[in-house]
Simulated assay, not measured.
Amino acid sequence: MNQQEINRILDELEAKAERDIEIVFARRLKSILAQMLEMHRKFGRNGEATWTDVNKYNRFNQEIKLIARQLNVDYKQIIKLIQASQERLYIERYLLMAYLLQQSTGEEMGFKIPSVEVIQAALTNPVEFLTLPKIFEAHRNEIIRRLNIEIAQSLQAGESYTDMAIRIENAMGWTRKKATLVARTEGGRARSQVDLAIEEQASKTARLTKVWMSSLDTRVRKSHRKLDGQKADKEGYFHYNGIGGSDHLPEHLQDKAPSLGWKAKGPRLWGIASMDIQCRCHTIFMVNGKLPEYRRGRDYMDDTYQKQLAASIDAYMSDLGLTYKQAFNKAYKEVKPPSVTIPFISYEDWRNQFSGKG
């Protein structure tokens, strides 16, 4: 097991949460379309409703109020889905990284399963208007407003049910994408928050170094591409200031680096929308200067192997212009660790033993 494999496990957990959110919106879209079809049948002429007929006796407002009540229930469900996903991501990354760090170094680092209170405190956004209820309150109000406008305009224009359905589908597609974006951002923030807890605990017995790893594709924002491969400073901060991290500054300016730009202890922790929203970057930990990995029959912590791996990563980044992630993957395939016979414990067995500690 290595950190890339852990990230892939967590990526799948995030993807599942996004699929669950899409199911909620798909069901609501189906329900609204059925409601509008019944409205055309009930209040229309020749199967097509008119603004005059629907607006009689406050019928239009009653239809919109029904949609609003249904969406209110949906958004409460979505908040619960995202919160459950955050908690799952937190505990899974914590345990997977605890296993990897302890087994690869052979040191007992004192990891303990975090309590529900600790997890919730870490995941609660300190900015009130950025909490999930506040964010989705704005989303809910906006989609209700948009559906009100689209349905009213469709009726006033004398459009058919099919034309109205297209309007509704477009509006619901917008709010589904917004909700998915929130889920992705909050899931990433949970992963960054648990990294702080991992760093705090593991640093008590080992020397940890954090490295910023950007994604592979061309959608990575310029600021995060510039952060790629940067090592955190002595206090655990990454820096973005148009120059680079503090390691790239003249020695007499390194202590002033925080005042020259922005700093954060991990991806999605800048507190700046343009740096946090939909960020797909990760933190990679080096332990005592080595990239931890643990497998049966291979010594991935061998000094010679680690030096060759680090040299290959640096060479691929400087000579080929690869991102840290690309260079890591390429070097990992080409540089092989020595074989060794050592006692091995699987993650499942370790987790069972670890859970029994409490």
Rank of each mutant, 00 (worst) to 15 (best):
R296C: 04
E107C: 09
G110V: 03
F43E: 02
K336H: 05
Y99I: 04
N72V: 14
S215K: 04
I67N: 08
F328Q: 09
D163W: 11
E235G: 00
P133L: 13
R268T: 13
E128H: 01
Q83V: 15
L249I: 09
P343E: 11
N125V: 10
A49P: 00
Q83I: 12
K204R: 08
D319Q: 12
N58K: 11
Q156R: 03
F354K: 03
K178E: 14
T124E: 14
E142D: 15
Q3M: 10
P126T: 07
P337G: 05
I82K: 00
S318E: 15
L320T: 06
R69V: 03
K290Q: 12
R219M: 08
N58S: 09
A183L: 06
L100P: 12
L37P: 05
Q86T: 02
E107A: 11
D302G: 05
K231Q: 13
A202S: 03
K112I: 08
F285W: 12
A15S: 12
A34S: 12
E12V: 14
G356V: 06
K226N: 15
I119S: 00
E63V: 15
A202G: 03
S346L: 05
D233V: 06
W174D: 13
K333V: 09
A152D: 04
G110F: 02
N148Q: 12
V340N: 04
R176Q: 15
